[in-house]
C-alpha cells in the first residue's frame, strides 16, 4: 500500500460576502496516495477551485483537517505555509504564468530562489534537469514569447518539478491548448506519473479526465462521485492516432 500524500477530513470552507455566507465546501473527505493521478472535476461553482486552493496551501479551511505528506497545515503560520509550498508542492496553471522577458531556464529556477539552502550552481543544474525531463533541453535560453503555448506549459511543468514536490497541482493545465498540444501535455504528465509523481489535475473536460487514474467529481461543495478510471486513455497512443496534418 502506497503512503498517503493528501489526507482531508470533514473539510469545510465558508466565504462571507456581506451578510450572506457561501458554503463553498461542505465537509470533504478525500485521500490521495502516492503515485496517483487524480482528476478533480466539476462545473464552475462546484467548489473544485476552492479545494485546489486549500490543497495548494494558498487558503486555509474554515474547519476540518488537511494533512499534506503527514504535516497538518491547520496549525501553520503564513510563512510556514509558504515554506510548505516551496518544498512540497508544484503548481501548473491554465495561463502558464511564466515571467515575461525571462528565459525558460530562469523561469524554472524561480522556486529554488526561495529556498535559501540551494546555492546558485545547484539551482542551475536542477533547472536544466527539469527542462530536460519535459523535453526542452534545446529551448533553455528562449524567452516565453519565443515558445509555443505547449512549450510554455512544458516550462511551467518543469518549474513545478524543479523542487521535487510530493504532489503537482494542475489547474486546467490544458485549458488554453488545442487538442494535439493537450495530448502532448497529457503524455508528459502520464510519463511523470509513471515515474512516481503524484498529480492532482483540476479539469471540467471529461475526455481529459480519462487520462488519469481516478476521478473525483464535485458539485455544490460535496463530492458526488469518486471512481477509478477504467479504460484509461494513453496519450502517446492517441497522439499517434491523430491525423498528422490536423493543424497544418
Amino acid at each position: 500500500m502506497n503512503k498517503s500524500i493528501i489526507q482531508v477530513n470533514q473539510l469545510k470552507k465558508d466565504f462571507y460576502v456581506g451578510e450572506i455566507t457561501v458554503h463553498a465546501l461542505r465537509g470533504i473527505n478525500l485521500e490521495i496516495k502516492q503515485g496517483e493521478f487524480v482528476a478533480i472535476m466539476g462545473t464552475s461553482g462546484s467548489g473544485k477551485s476552492t479545494m485546489l486552493n486549500i490543497l495548494g496551501c494558498l487558503d486555509k479551511p474554515t474547519s476540518g483537517s488537511y494533512f499534506l505528506d503527514g504535516i497538518s497545515m491547520g496549525e501553520l503560520s503564513k510563512n510556514e505555509l509558504a515554506g510548505l509550498r516551496n518544498m512540497k508542492l508544484g503548481f501548473v496553471f491554465q495561463s502558464y504564468n511564466l515571467l515575461s522577458r525571462t528565459s525558460a531556464l530562469e523561469n524554472v529556477e524561480l522556486p529554488l530562489f526561495y529556498n535559501p539552502k540551494i546555492k546558485s550552481k545547484e539551482r542551475r543544474e536542477r533547472a536544466e534537469a527539469a527542462l530536460e525531463a519535459v523535453g526542452l533541453s534545446d529551448r533553455m535560453h528562449h524567452m516565453p514569447n519565443q515558445l509555443s503555448g505547449g512549450q510554455q506549459q512544458r516550462v511551467a511543468i518543469a518549474r513545478s518539478l524543479v523542487n521535487d514536490p510530493v504532489v503537482i497541482l494542475a489547474d486546467e493545465a490544458t485549458g488554453n491548448l488545442d487538442t494535439r498540444t493537450s495530448f502532448e501535455i497529457m503524455a508528459l504528465l502520464q510519463d511523470l506519473n509513471q515515474k512516481g509523481k503524484t498529480i492532482v489535475f483540476v479539469t471540467h473536460e471529461a475526455d481529459i479526465a480519462k487520462f488519469m487514474t481516478r476521478q473525483v467529481v464535485f458539485r455544490d461543495g460535496h463530492i458526488i462521485r469518486e471512481e477509478l478510471v477504467t479504460n484509461r486513455n494513453n496519450a502517446v497512443e492517441l497522439l499517434k492516432a491523430l491525423p498528422i496534418d490536423e493543424t497544418a
Partner: peptide
Amino acid sequence: REIGLRLSVGGRG
C-alpha cells in the same frame, strides 16, 4: 500575477 506566482512557489510576504 508575477507576485501571485512568486507567492505560490513559496515566496513569503
